[in-house]
Write a protein that binds this DNA or RNA. Structure first.
Lengths: 210, 210
DNA sequence: ATAAATAAGGGGAATTTTCCCCTTGTTGTG
DNA sequence: CACAACAAGGGGAAAATTCCCCTTATTTAT
């Protein structure tokens, strides 16, 4: 018996080609497709049996990926879902995983890897990849970010400049060696390995405005 | 005979206190105040003689600083204008100067400098300060930015990472020394003095998205 | 056709950044 | 009280960045 896959995506062209691809895999079959979350919900309201797997797009009109996932968590918690999307938005990834999503694929994945992801999700329940672990580590960073001390924050904003650390030290009225301690401490807290990493973190978190 | 100053600003409180300040200066007198550009235009439509100087706020309801300056350029080109504003928006500064504005002051200027600015504008016709030269140099940078070669652009995006230049060279299939040339070339074109400068430029210009 | 700009590459040296590990008060907080 | 966490400081060394000049083809304008 083939595993039944549901595709939810508003891009018709993509849905259809994906359908062909999935059908070409041994043991898989696309049973249904929907253009947005609402259509999927309508379907499940008629028919409360989960499919083997849902491939869920994130950006959709009417009812997007997150909303759909939230509904599924409430109403069909055992339903396995793989998010399938164009952009790596870490916030979304984390939220989706919290809502019980089994994996998060970028649409530029190669077909072989995609087939592996389908198998892994259906057999082991989960599929984890770099996209997800990256998002997780960013999440981890954020936790750590809230643990920065006032002085570290100050240093961080000073680091977002063309000043050398020696100059930063002068500006902060500190010894260059103390500044060096803040740098090391931030590197480990924020899990970056260079000053550029610090700067990009600060800008991403809007600690420093460009 | 006192020099006659017109103030155009929507913040009543500011206008009034500024008026007192200007009147306290030797040889200056606020002849009129308006709450926005439109009021000023109405006035000049009745009375086509330029004042000695207009102090023009940028952010105003109905007719803002830029629009007002554009009107003045058309209708009263000999009118001297000093822009007076809260924020250094380089784009605006450049536009204002192109429209014939004689100077651009931030409202946090100290009174002594302000008096100097008034004198300088009325006597020499212009007042130039750091605000303006900064804006100019950013403008200069932008010009240069459009002159970046494809390879330089590539390097620039690679530089926005925690990779070392050696690693960047590997990624770009180049010798570290060639990468070094791109770096030097960008430093001089973009007028930065460190990799952090490159990164901040790239982010500001949205060459690299955070 | 010829000068100028671009792309690619390099030598050598001074600074800066990064790493690893260590000390000493001060400030909490269970 | 005690033990942890924080702020401030440092030694020494390896690695990366930055600076200043120089070369050689290839394109591209004039």
């Amino acid at each position: 018996m083939n595993k039944e896959i549901i595709i939810v995506d508003d891009h018709q062209l993509f849905t259809h080609s994906l359908q062909i691809l999935v059908n070409s895999f041994e043991g898989f079959e696309v049973s249904r497709t929907f253009k947005n979350g609402e259509e999927l919900v309508h379907y499940f309201n008629e028919n409360k049996t989960p499919s083997d797997l849902i491939l869920l797009d994130m950006r959709m009109p009417i009812m997007n990926g997150l909303e759909t996932m939230a509904w599924l968590k409430q109403n069909l918690p055992e339903q396995k879902v793989l998010a399938l999307t164009v952009d790596q938005e870490d916030e979304h990834i984390i939220k989706m995983l919290r809502l019980g999503c089994r994996g998060y694929l970028l649409k530029d994945i190669d077909p072989e890897m995609f087939e592996h992801a389908l198998n892994s999700t259906i057999n082991t329940g989960y599929f984890t990849n770099k996209t997800i672990s990256d998002a997780m580590s960013h999440e981890e960073r954020k936790k750590n970010y809230h643990a920065l001390t006032g002085r570290e924050m100050e240093f961080l904003t000073h680091a977002c400049s063309e000043k050398t650390y020696k100059e930063v030290a002068k500006d902060m009225n500190l010894s260059p060696k103390t500044v060096e301690n803040y740098r090391e401490s931030l590197f480990s807290k924020l899990q970056v390995r260079s000053r550029v990493g610090l700067v990009m973190f600060a800008i991403k978190e809007e600690i420093f405005k460009v």
